[in-house]
């Protein structure tokens, strides 16, 4: 798993975000209008793409895309 893949998947989910904006140290809460629906969308995407089920607190604790990447990787192993 590469962080570039995760970023690409996030870009696919959030079409309003311009390409190139999302990067490893981007805070996911800075996505415009970030809310509980976004949390669900991220959990669903990660479950279907990586077969990892994140909890609500995993997402609360993850600030940047890198944090998110690390928690997914940790749970994959």
């Amino acid at each position: 798993m590469k962080i570039e893949d995760l970023i690409e998947k996030l870009e696919e989910e959030f079409e309003d975000v311009e390409a190139g904006v999302l990067c490893p140290d981007f805070n996911i809460r800075d996505i415009e209008g970030w809310g509980s629906m976004h949390v669900l969308v991220v959990i669903a995407m990660i479950d279907s793409e990586y077969d990892v089920l994140l909890s609500g607190s995993d997402l609360t604790n993850a600030e940047t895309i890198l944090d998110l990447f690390e928690v997914v990787q940790e749970k994959m192993n």
Partner: peptide, 23 residues
């Protein structure tokens, strides 16, 4: 934000329900 209710109204923990359903 956007979540105001009293104690005789339905409360739903969206992420918990979502995780339960996926699992």
């Amino acid at each position: 934000e956007g979540i105001e209710r009293n104690r005789v109204q339905l409360e739903l923990q969206g992420v918990d329900v979502f995780n339960f359903s996926l699992k």
